[in-house]
Computed example of a mutant assay.
Amino acid sequence: MNNKQIVFTSPWKAEIRQKRLETPALGPDEAWVRKICTLVSPGTELACLSGNESWFRMPGIPGYASVSEVLQTGDNVEGFAAGDIVFHYGDHSAYSVVSTRHVWLKVPPSLPLPWVPFARMAAVAMTSLRVSQIELGDTVAVTGLGLVGNMASQLARLQGATVIGIDLSEQRLQLAKACGADHVLLGGKGELRDEVMRITNGQGVSALIEATGVPKVAVDHLPLVGRFGEVILLGSPRGDFQTNVTELLNRIHLDGSYGNLTFKGAHEWRYPVLPDRFAKHSLARNCGIILELMADGRLRIEPLISHVLKPEEAEQAYQGLRNDKDRYNGVLFDWR
């Protein structure tokens, strides 16, 4: 049996490779799975493909969002059997041996299988809600409406907030609107703050969820945040940015109309992987809730799927995500 894999071989080069695979000898807490669909995480995977992520070594197999069929389980794996459909953090390969002591969840039977890997990106977005004090009646701005930002917008609305989506792409703005954003505003315009103040009756937003990972975007949008507001750093900051930080620090320190701000990091790994008696939230719990929201129709996934491609089309996928961001957004590889 051959295991097909997508491999990043050098900066901006993705290849499909075949590796001989024998039936594995499983550990007691492991399972052998056959992938159905895997989802590209544009921010992380493009950063890896650029060669600028120190933790990712080339040649390497990217990816961390999968829906798979269970082929075999280890002796200690209870409640799962061959033929079950599961969500897990799997890479872009046809077959994998995975630990069931990580995020490992049965898929609700009514859920369309291509939706399932989006649970990973939605769980990333959910961290912004977990760390925040967003409440019913608040107004939240989300900068960057890619997969993570779009789902952060949807989740903030489920939390009871009025959502203002901000992006440089008209297409992403319309997609966010179709997924329920209350207001969408084109970024980079001088009147952006005036529009936000009009929407918020001059108060500014209660929270700014920064989902682009571009440091300048976070700093430039601080004037949108009202007194005692929060700035939630959801996108992982990347790239160099030089500025005088005094104004930023004054917005945190001073008691003015737009002061006393709180900055919070919202990286998903701040929570334990599995439920823990000393922590309310975990990655597994968040993902389970996301799957339920999908199954109930409260989280919209179908509009986010832009392409379903064969693994052999990996080069097209990554070039599209890099150079044609208006059309390439939610890109799935279908391994069936």
Results as ranks from 00 to 15, higher is better:
88 H>W: 14
197 M>H: 01
186 L>H: 06
164 I>Y: 04
168 L>R: 10
104 W>R: 05
198 R>S: 03
101 R>A: 13
149 G>T: 13
219 V>Y: 02
150 N>S: 14
140 V>S: 00
178 A>S: 05
203 Q>T: 09
86 V>M: 13
97 V>A: 11
221 H>W: 01
142 V>E: 06
162 T>L: 10
179 C>K: 01
172 R>M: 01
169 S>L: 10
128 S>I: 04
131 V>I: 11
119 A>D: 06
126 M>E: 04
164 I>V: 07
169 S>D: 05
153 S>D: 12
133 Q>N: 08
203 Q>P: 01
107 V>W: 07
186 L>A: 03
156 A>H: 10
208 L>N: 07
157 R>C: 07
188 G>W: 00
209 I>D: 03
96 S>F: 15
87 F>M: 13
177 K>E: 08
109 P>G: 13
90 G>A: 14
183 H>K: 03
195 E>T: 06
157 R>M: 13
177 K>Q: 04
199 I>Q: 01
123 A>M: 13
135 E>M: 12
206 S>K: 02
148 V>H: 02
143 T>C: 12
208 L>A: 03
119 A>N: 08
122 A>N: 08
144 G>W: 09
78 E>R: 15
96 S>G: 15
108 P>E: 06
181 A>M: 00
140 V>E: 01
168 L>Y: 05
210 E>G: 05
215 P>D: 04
75 D>L: 12
175 L>Y: 05
78 E>K: 15
197 M>V: 01
96 S>L: 14
83 G>H: 12
170 E>V: 04
214 V>Q: 11
146 G>A: 11
123 A>C: 11
190 G>H: 05
200 T>Y: 01
110 S>I: 07
118 F>G: 08
110 S>W: 02
91 D>C: 14
178 A>C: 00
209 I>V: 14
125 A>K: 02
158 L>A: 10
157 R>Y: 09
95 Y>C: 13
189 K>N: 06
213 G>V: 10
208 L>E: 07
109 P>K: 15
195 E>Y: 04
117 P>E: 11
115 W>R: 10
183 H>D: 04
186 L>R: 03
155 L>M: 07
76 N>A: 14
184 V>L: 02
208 L>H: 09
158 L>C: 10
163 V>F: 08
200 T>S: 01
145 L>D: 09
177 K>P: 02
204 G>Y: 00
121 M>R: 05
136 L>V: 10
204 G>R: 00
84 D>F: 12
89 Y>D: 14
193 R>A: 01
119 A>S: 15
81 A>F: 06
174 Q>K: 06
155 L>P: 06
140 V>G: 02
103 V>M: 07
111 L>W: 09
171 Q>V: 09
93 S>K: 15
131 V>Q: 00
161 A>Y: 05
211 A>R: 06
87 F>L: 15
152 A>W: 12
115 W>A: 09
97 V>M: 11
89 Y>G: 13
211 A>Y: 09
205 V>S: 00
186 L>Q: 05
139 T>A: 02
207 A>M: 11
104 W>P: 10
207 A>C: 14
149 G>R: 12
113 L>I: 14
